[in-house]
């Protein structure tokens, strides 16, 4: 596992500060761009919560989208149906996600490996079905559950205030980053990493693996729900895609792309994934693919095609993703000195 040497630990936070000031410069002035980055920051944070499970605890879950959606729908529901303000609605959503994570985690963690992945997939799929079929009138089905505009302060509403959303998303990312940092450095975090390496040894030492895994699962779930609550404010709705397995798989892609168990790698992976998938769509409309024959130009206009190819190449030729590649580069430079 490749961790930054301690003198570089603050670099990601400095970049976040620069990104915050960047919103006040002409560079990131356009609301469309600010919105893209806001979503990218949120996915960076979400990918980080997923990495807490996958990278730091060694739990391959296919159900992480469930908690993101629980946060988003919990908050959007409380605001739309009960006219709650954003703060109580957000707290309600976090508590709801906590209960969901506690229940599903207690059940799923009774099994390991692929079986664990499949049980989490099943729970998430159940959540997805509840949302898309609008069971018990909890959602709006295929349609999105809109944000109740009376529930949020005015400075988060309207195109003119996109910069505030950008900053909100950035602060959310910073909070998640600091929380994950603190958690992975704590004594509990060390047990997680020991569990990833060798579960038997941990239990021989007298610690119950189940409890520690459950703590990781619930904390990652609640943090994902927090990102979900903010996502409702930033994107103005909660939608069924949030609950889909596709969302979890894209988180997996982000973490692998950026570099597993490195914290900043997951964030970078999330940023690159979102920015690329939004900007690659414009590649086609700008006519950059005009000269290509249809059989290659068609797929090239789909962002997922290029992202998928990059992902396959990274897995095959650059284990450890971007963080791993940088690490090997540093080793090479060091050996020249």
């Amino acid at each position: 596992m490749i961790l930054l040497p301690s003198k570089y630990r603050f670099v990601p936070l400095i970049f976040m500060l620069i990104a915050g000031f960047g919103a006040f410069t002409p560079l990131i002035d356009e609301p469309g761009l600010q919105q893209t980055f806001a979503v990218a920051f949120l996915f960076g944070g979400l990918a980080l919560t997923y990495d807490l499970l996958l990278g730091f605890t060694g739990l391959l879950s296919f159900g992480h989208a469930l908690f993101y959606a629980a946060g988003a729908y919990g908050a959007a529901f409380a605001m739309a149906r009960w006219d709650w303000g954003i703060i109580p609605a957000g707290i309600f959503a976090l508590f709801f996600a906590f209960l969901v994570a506690l229940f599903t985690g207690t059940a799923a963690l009774r099994v390991k490996g692929i079986a664990f992945a499949m049980v989490t997939l099943a729970f998430a799929e159940a959540g997805h079905v509840i949302v898309t079929l609008n069971l018990w009138g909890l959602s709006e089905g295929d349609k999105t559950l809109q944000l109740n505009f009376d529930s949020v302060p005015d400075f988060f509403l309207g195109v003119a205030n996109t910069r505030n959303l950008y900053l909100l998303a950035l602060i959310t990312l910073a909070i998640i980053y600091l929380a994950v940092w603190w958690l992975t450095q704590s004594s509990v975090g060390r047990v997680w990493q020991a569990l990833r390496e060798n579960e038997e040894r941990v239990s021989v030492l007298g610690l119950r693996p189940f409890s520690f895994k459950l703590i990781a699962f619930v904390l990652a779930g609640v943090m994902a729900a927090f990102v979900g609550v903010v996502a409702v404010v930033v994107t103005n709705n909660a939608n069924p895609v949030m609950a889909s397995t596709q969302t979890t798989i894209s988180l997996l892609l982000m973490v692998i792309l950026g570099g597993i168990a490195t914290r900043w790698g997951a964030v970078i992976g999330g940023l690159i994934y979102v920015v690329l998938s939004q900007r690659l769509t414009t590649l086609d409309t700008q006519g950059a693919l005009a000269g290509l024959p249809e059989w290659i130009g068609g797929p090239m206009s789909e962002p997922a095609f290029i992202l998928g190819v990059i992902f396959i190449l990274v897995v095959m030729f650059s284990p450890g993703g971007i963080a791993g590649a940088l690490y090997r580069l540093r080793l090479k430079i060091a050996s020249f000195k």
């Binding site: 798989i249 797929p299 997922a304 992902f311 396959i312």
Partner: peptide, 10 residues
């Protein structure tokens, strides 16, 4: 996983 993604978009 990557191949599935690439195939669907193709």
């Amino acid at each position: 996983v990557g191949l599935g993604l690439v195939a669907v978009s193709a």
